[in-house]
Design a protein around this nucleic acid. Structure first.
Lengths: 192, 192
DNA sequence: GGCCTTACGTGATCTACATCACATTCGTAT
DNA sequence: ATACGAATGTGATGTAGATCACGTAAGGCC
């Protein structure tokens, strides 16, 4: 499916826009193609856009002490990603985003999103609900973190996104779960 | 400060409403007084409202196996709370909310919120930003969970909300941090 | 092809925290 | 004031997972 149609159907799940309205909205997006490994947002940079994933897989992650990496989000097609803290507060990025595979994304600037939200009530509604769902997912993950041990979280993740098992290297899954790659390795190889 | 004024100023931080508009919005809220220990939302119940805290302190928490409690949020004045998963998806509550101290809250029904969001673009804008901030806070807490050890999270929490130290029993702070009360006790008594 | 970086497996050891057990202190109701 | 449940302190012990150390396998790239 082409990018425009994908975004259209994605938005249509939450709000109804006329053909003209959607075309107008879409005119504020820019298509970008990235290569595997390429950075989308790097720590310390200014963040001006958020990204709608059309194809491929991205990761949003945080680096501590130049050593440990924690993955906040794997972004798959129809997911949105950015460093939202930096984007909304107009501060430098503290989160990195890069591409696990080659990827096509549609990007929109912060100003354009806010402009569209102001101009079209439906667009503001759409973004409210999108954030809602993100908030709920984040809260659910937080609970899972407190509640479950690593094995349970690992199985939960794979049950939710089976594609990940073949798509992303295991050490990235470990970084998402918040455990060392060694622990994850032992886990699904049945040791201990 | 009276409840109406508190809500007014809270909303005014994000959007400008005329006097009449705010009065109209406010007419959809109902004042509720709760006693210390009283339940606001109980697991398994239908959830119809969200709550704006005027005074006192509430907690939103999750119970596992009838044994372990994890606190998702302490809700202080000008904070909003509910079981948002149940509220938005119209399912039974999985989260409990109750009062740590006597508390006054303003509640609004899910339907009224959605109605106001539809009628007044500014109100939708307000709720989008409120959720935004909640999402960012949740993400930050998630990172802190993966990143920091218990001691660092404890100090982070107290730095952010010093009132909690005297207001809330320690075992609830432990339940927020996701550690046992024993570990927390040893922590700030300098053992180990 | 061969090279070299990245991914992955697995043992040994160490550590933060959970859990159990019990003592003590505090709050609140009668 | 007394009493009883809730909150807290603290020891002993067990365990999940981190860390270090090393080896093997698998992709990119010249």
């Amino acid at each position: 499916m082409e990018a425009k149609e994908l975004l259209k159907q994605h938005i249509a799940k939450t709000v109804s826009l006329s053909e003209d309205q959607f075309d107008y909205v879409f005119s504020h997006f820019t298509m970008q193609a990235y290569k595997k490994g390429q950075a989308v947002i790097s720590e310390g940079e200014k963040v001006n856009h958020e990204y709608f994933v059309v194809s491929g897989c991205l990761k949003a992650f945080y680096i501590t002490d130049e050593i440990k990496m924690y993955i906040l989000q794997f972004a798959m097609p129809t997911w949105w990603t950015s460093d939202y803290g930096a984007l909304y507060n107009q501060t430098k990025a503290t989160i990195n985003v890069d591409c696990i595979t080659d990827a096509d994304v549609l990007r929109i600037s912060n100003e354009d999103r806010e402009k569209l939200c102001k101009e079209l009530h439906e667009v503001e509604h759409f973004f409210r609900w999108r954030t809602n769902r993100g908030y709920l997912a984040s809260q659910k993950r937080l609970l899972s973190f407190m509640n479950n041990d690593t094995k349970a979280r690992y199985e939960e993740l794979l049950a939710m996104y089976p594609q990940l098992y073949n798509l992303v290297p295991k050490h990235l899954i470990a970084a998402y779960l918040g455990v060392s790659r060694e622990t994850l390795s032992r886990l699904y190889n049945g040791h201990r």
